[in-house]
Design a protein around this nucleic acid. Structure first.
Lengths: 148, 148
DNA sequence: TGTCAAGGTAGAAGAATGTCGAAACACGGT
DNA sequence: ACCGTGTTTCGACATTCTTCTACCTTGACA
């Protein structure tokens, strides 16, 4: 059985399904489920090596990179690189394909756009960090308690 | 010395300075320093509780939320929430301000937009979560080119 | 000034993570 | 069929992370 395209991707969160087509972080509180799945993706990106791997793959000519190219960039052992690639794969950020001797990785199409869409509202012409009610007095407001 | 606004934020990466005003992940490989600093931010978001905290703060009325409100949402102890808020603070994602008895947190202005700008060339006006991301605004032409 | 509540710090226990070397697996070539 | 190279899996170990309880700091108010 092939390692890639097999059991790994079956847990793919499919970001778009999870957060809706364009549900920004700031519009309404994330549910426990949503935050768990989203955090899985961000955690995968929360390592310098993995982030750099992601960038190397994304910026590589043809949109894909061979593991052999990636390994040379770091001062890390082969198994370690392989481990990080697996984490990225299971987070749904990249996909791997074996062609002959080498394995090529590429960014999962649309996933970066989906992530960006989670972070900012769809129309980012101006940063709405200070709303019209930016001056709030001492009183505390109620939070839409989202059920633990 | 005040805890907030003091030693914590002095290590603030100031995302924009680090990755340039709009240096997407896919345009050129991240340097070791860039990936280290960026990973610090993503790692902070790589926890379900912290991601939910971020969302609760961002979506709260007035753009800020009191710690007392945040604590109620989770089934976690106060110190644990405080710890997660500190991580978010040191990552440059939120800022805290004490007003009277309560401490209010808000999203660091522009940080989410900067992150989104790292992920995609230019924050798209409409989110192309479906594969038909045909109208890519500017830059990044390599990715779609796939020669099998 | 004393007391109370909100929030932070300190230290510790248990789980998760990053890294390695050794071994296994998958190909291509001889 | 065998060997060599590229890649992944397997155990193992040190480090980091999440969470807790106990205690401390800050500010409001009588």
């Amino acid at each position: 059985m092939s390692k890639h395209g097999g059991a790994d991707e079956r847990a793919l969160p499919q970001l778009a399904d999870l957060v809706g087509c364009c549900s920004p972080l700031a519009r309404e509180p994330l549910s426990a489920e949503q935050s768990t799945e989203l955090a899985r993706v961000f955690k995968a990106m929360g390592d310098p090596v993995r982030l750099r791997l992601l960038s190397l793959i994304a910026s590589h000519a043809g949109g894909e990179a061979c593991v052999c190219d990636l390994t040379d960039v770091f001062d890390l052992s082969g198994p370690t690189i392989s481990h990080h690639l697996k984490v990225l794969r299971e987070a749904g950020l990249i996909t791997g394909e074996r062609r002959g001797t080498w394995v090529y990785y590429r960014i999962q199409p649309g996933v970066l756009e989906a992530l960006a869409a989670v972070l900012v509202p769809a129309v980012p012409q101006a940063v709405p960090t200070d709303l019209e009610s930016a001056t709030i007095p001492e009183g505390r407001r109620e939070l839409p308690v989202v059920e633990a």
